[in-house]
Design a protein around this nucleic acid. Structure first.
Length: 131
DNA sequence: TTGTTGACCTCTT
DNA sequence: CAAGAGGCCAACA
């Protein structure tokens, strides 16, 4: 094969390369699903992880969101919350209140950093995209 | 290179 | 009912 050194399968896949490239990593799939979240709806890390294959990979979804800030097109990370409907990642946004602001613009009401009527607004890819 | 950490979830005690 | 531990994969020191 062309490469003199063996390709490290487990090693980092450059996120920037994923953008518009053939190699589809776990991260890109996360971004893709998150972009599909309709306005006014919210999803959860576990739901996305489960849709991709393993619900135990929910942590990776969180990591993907962390990198999502350097990803383009922009990923609506504010529409992704934890299983409790709580804005666990709001602190990682540009401003601690940015996530609330974005959700408020989508008519998503919050109370104590928790989404009101979360069950009704929960957009589960496993169900919505299960066609 | 190994080991620890991380925007989580589920099971077990 | 509450608290603890395990598990997943990737990035960082």
């Amino acid at each position: 094969m062309a490469k003199s050194k063996k390709i490290k399968q487990t090693t980092a896949i450059p996120i920037l390369l994923i953008n518009g490239k053939k190699e589809a990593s776990f991260f890109e799939q996360v971004y893709d699903v998150v972009r599909l979240i309709p306005k006014g709806r919210v999803s959860s890390y576990g739901a996305i992880a489960a849709y991709l294959g393993s619900k135990k990979s929910a942590r990776m979804v969180g990591w993907a969101m962390n990198n999502a800030h350097q990803i383009q097109p922009k990923v609506p990370a504010h529409r992704v919350v934890n299983r409790n409907g709580m804005l666990s990642g709001k602190a990682h946004f540009a401003t601690p209140t940015l996530m609330e602001e974005l959700l408020a613009k989508e008519k998503v009401l919050l109370k104590n950093d928790c989404i009101i009527n979360f069950a009704a607004k929960h957009w589960d890819p496993t169900i919505e995209l299960a066609l």
